[in-house]
């Protein structure tokens, strides 16, 4: 009898409860993304504005003559708006291959032959991208609030602006859900991650260009509805209680964002299948 039998043996251990498949996918995806140097580099760069703001908070609370730079609710709005660039690059770098690579390698049939629903699969993939995006939006913004209180030595600013924490949370989550669902939907329609990246950049820039043209022609910013980025900016202004930048009713901007998210969900529902049926 061999000392160690390398033949097939039956498993007699316990199995995990169902419903944690999304967590397995998300954990593996996060590990895999963090192993890439460009992702780590992007994350580090994305935290530079946080460091800049933190230093500014320190200076304004320490030196009274710098009150002109004092922290306001607008500071947080501007900080989050400044993070849009990092959201764009992270979404493209991390998101393009999330489903497209699985489709190219026929991995969907492997995933969906396991005790895993399509929703769990999408949730797992979405968590990977959303975690990174929240890591450069919600997390630094909330930490900035804490840093402000720490340097000021009191909670006066937070109490005076009690809406800020919910505003940061709601805005960051809506923005991340929009970026994540758009990227996942685009990633599910192609097998080429490069093509997905081009499509995403195309959607962002092309809709912004159309908005710019229409604004010039109509002499009104009502056309912000054609651009998801501008619609999001309009919603952001209202959430942070600053004057809206466009003439568009905010409810319509909200409807546009909700419509895009709904459309993406529909695309994902149709594209995430264990088998492609061509009737």
């Amino acid at each position: 009898m061999p000392i160690h039998d390398q033949g097939y043996r039956h498993f007699g251990g316990t199995r995990e409860a169902r419903g944690r498949g999304w967590l397995v996918i998300a954990t593996a995806g996060l590990k895999s993304a963090l192993a890439k140097r460009p992702v780590v580099f992007l994350l580090l760069v994305a935290w530079i504005p946080f460091a800049y703001q933190a230093i500014k908070f320190y200076l304004t609370t320490t030196f009274g003559q710098l009150q002109v730079l004092a922290t306001t609710a607008q500071t947080f709005r501007e900080f989050l708006e400044g993070q849009d660039t990092f959201i764009f690059f992270l979404t493209i770098y991390i998101g393009t291959g999330l489903i497209a690579n699985d489709r190219r390698a026929n991995a969907l049939q492997i995933y969906l032959s396991k005790p895993l629903t399509r929703l769990e699969y999408v949730a797992g993939k979405a968590t990977i991208l959303a975690a990174f995006l929240l890591g450069v939006t919600w997390l630094p913004a909330v930490l900035l609030l804490a840093v402000q209180a720490m340097f000021a030595g009191n909670l006066a600013f937070i109490k005076a602006n009690a809406f800020l924490f919910p505003a940061i949370t709601v805005y960051a989550f809506v923005q991340v859900v929009l970026a994540t669902s758009t990227m996942l939907a685009l990633s599910s329609v192609s097998k080429s991650s490069r093509f997905v990246g081009i499509m995403y950049a195309g959607v962002v820039f092309f809709t912004d260009a159309i908005f710019g043209t229409l604004k010039f022609l109509m002499n009104s910013s009502f056309a912000s509805l054609v651009s998801p980025t501008q619609s999001m900016a309009q919603i952001g202004d209202v959430i942070f209680r600053v004057p809206p930048r466009h003439d568009t009713p905010t409810a319509l901007s909200l409807l546009v964002v909700a419509g895009i998210i709904g459309l993406c969900a529909l695309v994902l529902e149709r594209r995430i299948r264990g088998v492609e049926v061509v009737a």
């Binding site: 690579n101 991995a107 032959s113």
Partner: peptide, 20 residues
């Protein structure tokens, strides 16, 4: 379907793997 898939193994006809 999930209870069944927890107890079966499927070897598909065409190539299939998780990239990378």
């Amino acid at each position: 379907p999930l209870e069944i898939r927890a107890r079966i193994g499927y070897m598909p006809e065409n190539d299939g793997h998780i990239p990378g």
